[in-house]
Design a protein around this nucleic acid. Structure first.
Length: 279
DNA sequence: AGCATCACCTGGCTGC
DNA sequence: TGCAGCCAGGTGATGC
């Protein structure tokens, strides 16, 4: 599932391919991919515009256009962006819902089996060009940094499970089920701990774990799971899944202490942890 | 306001 | 082999 490292990898791909290019034609065939405005309106506002910047906050991508608008893309569960330099050579995959033809003939294709993914365009932007509604997000650990002091402030007083707080985009932007579990493991903290109960030392471990897990995951271009459809813009798989210590590893040996990794339920979502060495 | 729960959706997996 | 039913999960709506 695309979380911060996967979306950042896609953003870098967009920067290397479509930034600076004009969008000549937008074809929207998916009924659910554009829902905040009519597909016709999005097409009218986007066609002919040049992409000046590819940015990201949390799991949201924002393509900043030459007239000040932002084209926002969220991949949700199964959304995939694919850059196709020679469209005639590659038939559109099943579940292709949006196709942007760029000047020069290349295509940017949006494929999304579960149809939760979303595109919309907005003129309501901040001074930095990003959509104003991004103000609702907590800090993005990769784009903004997340010092211990700030992290503690974000978690203070929260009477909910640590993992639930970590995956709440208003608290911290960008973490989902996979990286929240991996971060709790590296920080040696139980995911079901009360978020507001961490002491100084635990908060430092958590801040360090957020930094190291995300940095490594971005470096390995994200995680591609067996069932999920994550691939980068060029169709390549990520390689961080091989580094997962707990996520999806119920019953396997904990790489730190050798005890069995457990599968838990936290906030109606599955969670994985080693109850022996996560204190 | 903050927290919990549910709905949205399809492909893949499990069990019969 | 076929098929029903469950599970996966990010977000927003709804309820408490």
């Amino acid at each position: 599932m695309p979380e911060l490292p996967e979306v950042e990898t896609v953003r870098r791909g967009l920067e290397a391919t479509v930034v600076g290019c004009r969008m000549d034609r937008v074809k929207i065939t998916g009924r659910r991919s554009v829902r905040r405005q009519s597909p016709a309106e999005l097409r009218r506002r986007v066609e002919g515009r040049r992409i000046e910047r590819a940015d990201r906050r949390g799991k949201y991508l924002a393509l900043l256009l030459d007239d000040g608008q932002a084209l926002v893309i969220h991949l949700r569960m199964s959304g995939q962006l694919l850059y196709v330099p020679q469209p005639a050579r590659l038939r559109a995959a099943k579940h292709t819902h949006v196709v942007v033809r760029m000047e020069g003939g290349a295509e940017l294709r949006f494929v999304d089996a579960r149809t939760f993914g979303e595109w919309y365009v907005t003129r309501d932007v901040r001074d930095d060009g990003l959509p104003a509604e991004f103000d609702a997000f907590g800090p993005d650990p990769f784009a903004d940094g997340l010092p211990v002091r700030v992290l503690r402030g974000r978690l203070a007083g929260r009477r909910t499970a640590l993992k639930v707080a970590l995956t709440n985009q208003a608290v911290i932007a960008g973490l989902g089920n996979i990286y929240a579990d991996e971060i709790c493991f590296v920080a040696r903290l139980r995911p079901e701990r009360l978020a507001g109960s961490l002491d100084d030392e635990e908060s430092r471990r958590l801040a360090r774990a957020i930094g190291s897990v995300l940095t490594d995951a971005v470096q390995l271009r994200g995680s591609s799971l067996r069932d999920a459809s994550y691939r980068d813009l060029m169709g390549e798989l990520g390689e961080y899944q091989g580094r997962h210590c707990v996520y999806g590893r119920a019953g396997a040996d904990c790489p730190r202490c050798g005890h069995e990794v457990q599968k838990l339920k936290i906030g109606a979502r599955s969670a994985y942890a080693c109850e022996h060495c996560q204190g």
